[in-house]
């Protein structure tokens, strides 16, 4: 049971909404955080917590693209392919990643380190090409930069190249 040990967190979430079902998306995030994906037992547990049927949880989960219904790699690399990023070269980045990780979109590397997803617009169109790895954004990508990020992730589990609070263009002293 995932949520047994998270009672406080769950209760705080539930207290935010007058109707329990509203806590569904947040609870699914917790389930995904704890297990790496949204498992069936987790959906059933959430259904119980929110007085829903498992089918109701399931229909909601499958509507949204951010929940994984299967285990994925340690780092979920999501590269934007939409027009704005494509104009500035996202296709090349995707190709480079596919070649270097030797996987195509939707696949996970054999060592289960990386899962690649080619996705639609992630809302940083001015700083493309860009990708999201787990929670973090990496923007204005070049092939070298992606290589560096992947090395960092593999070695340190994180990379300093990730975007901080977003500001673009950066203000210049006038």
């Amino acid at each position: 049971m995932i949520f047994d040990k998270l009672k406080d967190e769950v209760n705080e979430l539930l207290s935010r909404y007058p109707v329990k079902r509203s806590a569904l998306l947040p609870l699914l995030y917790i389930a995904q955080r704890e297990e790496g994906y949204v498992s069936e037992p987790a959906m059933k547990e959430i259904a119980k917590l929110l007085s829903l049927t498992p089918s109701q949880v399931y229909e909601t989960v499958t509507f949204y693209s951010m929940y994984n219904l299967k285990p994925i790699g340690k780092f979920h690399v999501q590269v934007c392919r939409s027009l704005m990023c494509a104009l500035v070269g996202s296709d090349n980045i995707v190709e480079w990643i596919q070649k270097n990780l030797n996987i195509s979109s939707g696949q996970t590397t054999a060592d289960r380190t990386f899962t690649l997803s080619v996705v639609e617009c992630l809302g940083s169109c001015g700083t493309g090409p860009m990708m999201q790895v787990n929670d973090d954004y990496y923007e204005r990508l070049t092939e070298e930069k992606v290589g560096q990020i992947f090395d960092d992730l593999k070695q340190k589990g994180s990379s300093s190249l990730k975007s901080g609070p977003f500001m673009f263009p950066q203000p210049t002293k006038s």
Binding site: S82, M84, E120, S124, C125, M167, F168
Partner: peptide
């Protein structure tokens, strides 16, 4: 797509 102001 093309919008990224609210984020900032």
């Amino acid at each position: 797509p093309g919008t990224f102001k609210d984020r900032q």
